[in-house]
């Protein structure tokens, strides 16, 4: 639907949009800088800092670590989120509303509060600075996203299909594998992408919970911004942004495809 929007409003909208996106995009030209100093506007053009990013163990191992933690967070969130969504949508029990609030509370609560709490619990359990600890922490905030995405998919799935499958002779497990799972796969993928993205650029929990040996990419960027301002920081920012944009685009594409599939 296109409506006639007054020119003035169009310009205003354009300016607001630019103001929102420009600070993000500014890192891209800075990442191609030829100067050893991080500044805007950049001087010259070179791919030198991209080389540094991929060869310097500080950066490359942090990037790999981030991928590892995001991937593990995604798997754990999917398992927990799918189970919870199935129980909440298909199950018959009382008190669903308070449970729902509890499930969603990590994305409403200030993350810094969660970070402080986890810091003390983790130091007591001696898992500060461990990969597992960080994965657990990220799962706390990523899992509600999987839950939302999957419960939406399950609500849209007609439960009569599962009844029909049973009447045709299929056991509960067979029905889940052949009917339920294929039909909620788009929701599952969307949830997975959101969970991965959430962990991928998470900084607050990571600052509190990482140690000297286990550092994620955002944490290294945070360290660097306080010590040496090299253009490698802009490279890291660009790469974080590109990965995030690609993942979100995938999630949006899955969303539109799901709508197109509806009869």
């Amino acid at each position: 639907m296109t409506r006639n929007i007054p020119l003035g409003l169009k310009i205003f909208g354009g300016v607001v949009g630019m103001l929102l996106i420009m600070p993000t995009l500014v890192v891209i030209p800075m990442s191609f800088s030829a100067s050893p100093l991080l500044k805007f506007p950049p001087e010259g053009f070179s791919l030198h800092w991209y080389g540094v990013f991929f060869t310097d163990p500080l950066w490359s191992s942090a990037a790999l670590r981030s991928i590892q933690i995001a991937a593990l967070t995604t798997v754990l969130s999917l398992l927990l989120g799918t189970g919870t969504a199935l129980a909440m949508i298909r199950g018959r029990f009382r008190g669903k509303s308070p449970i729902q609030v509890l499930i969603l509370s990590p994305i409403i609560m200030p993350i810094v509060v969660l970070a402080v709490g986890l810091y003390f619990v983790y130091s007591d359990w001696k898992i500060l600075g461990s990969v597992g600890g960080l994965v657990l922490a990220h799962t706390v905030i990523a899992y509600p996203l999987v839950y939302i995405s999957l419960s939406t998919a399950l609500k849209a799935l007609d439960s009569k299909l599962e009844d029909a499958s049973a009447s045709l002779g299929a056991s509960k497990a067979y029905t889940f594998r052949r009917i339920t799972l294929p039909l909620i796969t788009p929701g599952l993928l969307t949830g997975a992408l959101f969970a991965f993205t959430m962990s991928w650029d998470e900084l607050i929990l990571s600052i509190f919970l990482t140690g000297p040996t286990v550092k994620t990419l955002p944490v290294v960027m945070w360290d660097q911004v306080q010590t040496e301002l090299s253009p490698t920081l802009a490279v890291a920012a660009t790469i974080v942004m590109l990965v995030t944009i690609v993942l979100i685009m995938c999630a949006l594409l899955i969303g539109t495809r799901r709508k197109a599939l509806k009869p």
Binding site: K160, D163, A164, S165, S167, L168, G169, A170, K172
Partner: peptide
């Protein structure tokens, strides 16, 4: 239900999309 061997036709067809 899945062991009863009874065929059923539903109001909203319930075909697997």
């Amino acid at each position: 239900p899945h062991l009863r061997g009874i065929g059923m036709v539903f109001q909203q067809y319930a075909l697997f999309p």
